[in-house]
Write a protein that binds this DNA or RNA. Structure first.
Lengths: 195, 195
DNA sequence: GTCTATAGCGTGATAGAC
DNA sequence: GTCTATCACGCTATAGAC
């Protein structure tokens, strides 16, 4: 331990990802240099290229990893019996998951335009997949007669924007806990879509 | 006309702002160079500094001008008699105003972190001022008894996020007109806050 | 796997000619 | 008001020693 040179491979890889996530979230992808990331990790800039082919791959891996985690976590949630209960589960899941990863959420929304076109298409596909699960819930509730949204596609956009927006104002030491926020947002959601 | 050198001062100033707006919106502030802006305008990089002290001032002027315009436009709207009608006016105004200026909205949300602290505080103050007009409407409706939001502050965040989110998916040649979108969003808003 | 050194280029901003 | 030229520096990515 306390080595200042030599092999750290088991540590360095994850630490590069953590530093990149933190710095990209704080300053933006374009404003962060490979030298800054290296300094943050405690290695020289050249050493980063043992772990990533280039800066673009670093960004893509962060976003791809985040989207995979999001979809896996939602898939792992139990599926309640009624559309109303499924919608409540989605609202609470979305808020909880997003508030637990503010930096990953931030770059997932802010840095999309810095992805190469191929990478962008992949991330955009995964995001659409996630959003379509909400649209599915809304459609189920519509056909079943428990919801009355004017347009499921627009209601999906509206709800996702509303829920994700929590990340822009929520503070850990604030007036409300995650559960209290979730209660209020579920209340508003419910009123918005209920018959 | 068709001069390639000499004074164009009446034209160049606005054209620099337009180019900066377009390029910042497309690639991001940090990723755009003064040379790119100059090329877009058709002058050399040095000439830009006759119009702006530096790149930062260019960004700040765009955001400040946009916020001033937003507040002035809302102030110029008529004020309906009841909270419900005022809320409807706000919803329709917000969507219409934002959809008419997608690039300015985009950089207003994406480039805040690239503002110097002093500039950030000014823009943030103006934004809070705009949002507080919505909170005021919600409070009026609450005391009057026509609304039933659980928390006016959170309802403000939720509504602003929901309404601004339209900019992320709306396309001019899409399925719905601005008025149709506004109708649907007003319907959802109404259901969300109505008693 | 990390280091040092460097290639090749782009950056924001300024000086001075016209 | 715009141009050309330039300063001083930072950038990504690579090469080769260890």
């Amino acid at each position: 331990m306390a080595r200042t040179q030599g092999s750290h491979s088991a540590q360095t890889g994850p630490r590069i990802r953590e530093a990149a996530l933190r710095l990209f979230a704080k300053h933006g992808y374009a404003a962060v240099s490979m030298r800054q990331i290296a300094r943050d990790v405690g290695v020289q800039a050249g050493a980063l290229y043992n772990y990533t082919p280039d800066k673009q791959a670093l960004l893509f891996d962060l976003l791809k990893g985040h989207m995979d985690e999001l979809l896996a976590a939602w898939k792992a949630e139990p599926t309640p019996a009624t559309p109303t209960l499924r919608l409540e589960a989605f609202v609470r899941f979305h808020i909880r998951f997003h508030l637990a990863r503010p930096q990953a959420i931030f770059i997932s929304y802010m840095e999309l335009r810095n992805l190469d076109p191929d990478n962008f298409a992949i991330i955009e596909g995964l995001r659409k997949r996630y959003e379509s699960t909400l649209t599915g819930i809304l459609r189920d509730g519509l056909t079943e007669g428990s919801f009355a949204v004017p347009d499921p596609a627009l209601a999906t956009y509206a709800l996702i924007a509303m829920l994700t927006g929590v990340n822009t104002w929520y503070r850990d030491k604030g007036r409300l806990s995650v559960d209290e926020v979730s209660d209020i947002y579920w209340d508003m959601t419910c009123r918005m879509v209920a018959r």
